[in-house]
Computed example of a mutant assay.
Amino acid sequence: MTRLKNALRGHFIAPVPTTGAEPADSDYLELAKWISGVTDDTNEETDDTGFYDGDGTKETTVTGVSGAYTFDGFYDSEDPAQALVAAKKYKIGDDRKLWHKIVSADGKKQWTGLATVSDIKAGDGDATDYEAFGCKLTFNQLPKEKAITPPSGGGSGE
């Protein structure tokens, strides 16, 4: 298997349509410009229990997963994705929700779900630094996984 750079993984966001349905692919904006780091901050809840039908050794069961990603970089107020995040800074409740889509670095899978944006930074830092940008996107439910099929046609021509 080939090692793939993190920069090949895509993170896309879209506003929540008034219908509440998932947005069209064309509505998603890539959250990438001037982003230098993305951290997987997924939180797992577990339960450790031993059973009499074993030797009493505790087994770990994952009881909950809260998928989350934290973005760090520089702020560009003209970038549509960063502007969408920045517009949520002084919002609360449902007004903090966005759709988040992740496309794997190999382009074979994607995960999509409604997420809440928090920890928004849109212009932050020392006077001599470039303005900082950052946010955390936390899925509100487990995201839906989907295989991505390459477009037909255009093969290698062999």
Rank of each mutant, 00 (worst) to 15 (best):
V62F: 06
S118V: 02
K108N: 12
D119G: 14
H11L: 10
I102D: 01
W99K: 04
I120Y: 08
D25M: 09
Y90N: 15
V117M: 08
F74V: 07
G54V: 03
D55I: 07
R9D: 06
F12C: 00
T57D: 14
L8I: 00
I148R: 10
L31W: 06
G56P: 07
Y75A: 08
A127I: 08
L29I: 00
A83N: 05
S26E: 14
E131H: 11
W111A: 10
N140Q: 15
I120M: 08
T149D: 11
G125F: 07
R9V: 11
I35C: 07
L31I: 07
L137E: 07
G157F: 01
V16D: 08
D25G: 14
G67K: 11
E30D: 06
T57R: 11
D106K: 02
A86N: 02
F74M: 04
D53W: 13
R9H: 01
S26M: 01
T61M: 04
T39W: 09
F74C: 00
D126P: 00
G125A: 07
I92P: 01
F74S: 06
N43S: 14
A7V: 11
D76H: 05
I148E: 08
A147L: 11
T116C: 03
G107I: 03
E59D: 13
D41H: 08
Y90G: 05
P143N: 09
N43W: 04
F71R: 07
Y130M: 09
A24L: 15
T60S: 09
D41T: 13
A86D: 12
E45N: 12
I13L: 06
E44K: 14
T70H: 13
S118R: 10
V62Y: 04
P143D: 03
L4N: 09
G154E: 14
D126A: 15
G107H: 02
D48W: 01
Y52K: 07
L142P: 06
A86C: 02
T128D: 15
S104Q: 03
A86R: 02
T116Y: 05
T49L: 12
Y90V: 01
A24C: 00
G10F: 00
E22R: 15
D94R: 13
D76M: 03
G125L: 05
D48K: 11
E145G: 10
T63I: 05
A115S: 15
F133S: 00
A147F: 06
A87M: 00
T49M: 09
A83V: 01
P23K: 09
G54M: 05
T149A: 13
R9F: 05
S152F: 01
T60M: 11
T70Y: 10
D124H: 10
T61W: 04
G134R: 08
S156N: 11
D47S: 14
D119V: 01
K146E: 15
G64E: 14
D79F: 03
I92W: 06
T70K: 15
A132F: 07
E45M: 02
A105S: 13
F71K: 04
S26I: 02
A115I: 02
D95A: 14
V62W: 00
I148H: 09
D106E: 08
A127L: 10
I35L: 05
P151H: 03
L31N: 03
L31Y: 04
G123K: 01
G64Y: 03
K33A: 10
I92V: 12
N140P: 05
D76G: 06
